[in-house]
């Protein structure tokens, strides 16, 4: 039987397959299995313990009728819009400034990027201190004589999410600057020369030639910022713990609180499934554009 001499294809590259077991387990059990499990249990009325007692879309109806969830979503949208617009604009401007063959470029870059090395907890606590109305910026300005000056975003429920955004921008724009700078450096030097010979002013070169050329960098950056926005949690916990009241709640915190404090697992699962859905809305079109085009 010459056929039996052919090695079983299952055992080809056996070592590689053994080495890939952790990856396969992670991918299938945690990522696929865990996600499906959560989605499945979001249709149950699990309270303290997960239980397969299906109640259809009840958890979702309840979720969208909960003021705290609605505030969380509203906050996420505001926070997301601010993060997206300002980190792109500031990040690009800083990168463009650093790209002008300036002195001390490395020093400036180090300064703009160091907050990114800090955790959201540290970031949040520092800004909590700076924005403290009794000691922080408001207090300092009032001491200067402008006694009616008011700047207490973390204690004012109508603007608290903007206060959180200030800290987020401080922490995150350095990264965007770095990505943009790498993109700018990737532009062919000859393009700049050609534009100079053509007599095109610098701002027009940026606007009409360089930025359109950096489209892939912008898309990658957009995906990175967007996936970071959905996950925002630590920063809020450190800065305001969701307060004042529930004014600065975000979805990630809603999930955590319902799962581990309110002992209402079903709500937590439904809320996390909504988060998954919102990420999918961002990621799927991007992946389709990115990989669909390649085929």
């Amino acid at each position: 039987m010459s056929k039996s001499e052919r090695p079983n294809p299952l055992f080809r590259n056996l070592n590689a397959k053994v080495a890939s077991i952790p990856m396969i387990l992670t991918a299938m059990v945690v990522f696929v299995g865990g996600t499906l499990w959560t989605v499945l249990y979001s249709f149950t009325n699990s309270k303290l313990l997960p239980r397969l007692n299906f109640v259809g879309l009840d958890q979702y109806y309840r979720l969208w009728a909960t003021p705290r969830w609605l505030i969380s979503i509203e906050n996420l949208l505001i926070y997301g819009a601010i993060s997206l617009v300002f980190s792109l604009v500031i990040g690009f401007l800083l990168a463009a400034l650093l790209d002008q063959k300036i002195r001390f470029e490395d020093t400036f870059r180090t300064i703009f990027l160091y907050p990114f090395a800090l955790s959201f907890i540290v970031t949040g606590l520092v800004w909590q201190w700076l924005l403290n109305p009794d000691f922080g910026i408001q207090h300092v300005v009032r001491d200067l004589g402008w006694t009616s000056f008011s700047f207490d975003p973390l204690y004012n429920s109508s603007i608290v999410i903007y206060g959180i955004s200030i800290a987020a921008l401080w922490q995150g724009t350095g990264l965007i600057m770095c990505l943009m700078l790498a993109g700018l450096r990737g532009i062919d030097e000859d393009i700049w020369k050609a534009a100079r010979v053509d007599g095109i002013p610098m701002w027009k070169t940026y606007l009409f030639i360089v930025i359109p050329m950096m489209r892939p960098v912008f898309i990658t950056t957009l995906v990175i910022i967007a996936s970071g926005i959905v996950k925002v949690y630590d920063l809020v916990v450190a800065q305001t713990s969701g307060g004042p009241g529930i004014a600065s709640e975000v979805p990630a915190k809603y999930v955590y609180d319902y799962m581990f404090f309110a002992q209402n697992l079903g709500q937590g699962f439904a809320a996390s499934t909504m988060m998954l859905l919102s990420v999918a809305i961002v990621i799927v079109p991007w992946a389709y554009l990115e990989f669909g085009r390649r085929k």
């Binding site: 890939s20 990856m23 396969i24 992670t26 991918a27 299938m28 945690v30 990522f31 696929v32 299995g33 865990g34 996600t35 499990w37 959560t38 989605v39 249990y41 997960p50 996936s227 959905v230 996950k231 979805p251 990630a252 999930v255 955590y256 799962m259 697992l265 937590g268 699962f269 809320a271 996390s272 499934t273 988060m275 998954l276 990420v279 990621i283 992946a287």
Partner: peptide, 19 residues
Amino acid sequence: FFIILIVGAFIPYQVMIYP
């Protein structure tokens, strides 16, 4: 498996915490 792994990186952690 690799693609699943990479796509998994974008799933919010909250979805996988409880499992």
